[in-house]
Simulated assay, not measured.
Amino acid sequence: MGINNQSDAEANLQIGPTDQGMVRIFVESHGAEIPMDFEPDEALEIAEEIRAAAMMVKGSR
């Protein structure tokens, strides 16, 4: 599956700080749990990438 392939898959997404000073993105879908921990600087880079992608989509409408 690529980034441009549509899917009917559903997932729960949680994002928050951990007690270890990391930022966790936690994805749960159909019983599978994927915790992904990032250093704060990495999390800010991810946030910037998400924002840039949203702005690209918003600008193309």
Rank of each mutant, 00 (worst) to 15 (best):
S7W: 00
E45Y: 06
E45I: 07
M56K: 12
I46K: 08
T18I: 03
N4G: 02
D8G: 06
A32S: 07
S60D: 09
E28M: 08
L44G: 02
A11P: 01
V23S: 01
F38I: 06
E42Q: 15
M36C: 11
N12P: 02
N4E: 08
A11M: 09
M56E: 13
A54D: 15
A11L: 10
M1T: 13
E28A: 12
A9C: 04
G21V: 00
T18D: 01
G59S: 13
G16W: 03
V23M: 13
D19Q: 10
Q14M: 07
G16Y: 04
K58V: 08
I46F: 14
A53E: 14
I34S: 08
I50C: 09
E28Q: 09
G2R: 13
A52Y: 10
L44I: 15
N12A: 11
N12M: 10
K58T: 14
L13M: 10
E49W: 09
R24A: 08
M56I: 07
V57E: 12
D8K: 05
E42N: 09
P17T: 13
A54L: 15
N12K: 09
F38L: 15
V23C: 04
P40G: 01
V27P: 02
G21Y: 00
Q20H: 05
A32R: 08
I34Q: 07
D8P: 01
D41Y: 04
I25N: 01
G31P: 01
M22N: 09
D19N: 10
P35K: 00
E48L: 10
E39K: 13
A9D: 11
R51D: 15
R61F: 09
S29N: 08
A54P: 00
M22L: 13
I50H: 03
E45W: 07
P35R: 00
V27L: 14
A47D: 08
A52G: 03
I15K: 04
A52K: 12
I15R: 02
I34A: 08
E33P: 00
Q20W: 02
G16R: 02
H30N: 11
R24M: 12
H30M: 09
G59A: 12
R61Q: 12
D37W: 00
G21I: 02
E28C: 02
A32F: 06
M22E: 12
F26G: 04
L44W: 05
G31D: 03
I46L: 15
E39S: 06
V27W: 05
I3W: 06
I34T: 12
S7G: 03
E28R: 07
D37T: 07
V27C: 01
I46N: 02
M56D: 12
A52Q: 13
E10Q: 13
I34N: 10
P17S: 10
D41W: 06
F26S: 06
P17H: 03
P40Y: 00
I46T: 03
L44Y: 08
V23P: 01
S7V: 06
Q14S: 11
D37E: 13
A53C: 06
G31M: 01
M56S: 11
R24N: 10
M56Y: 05
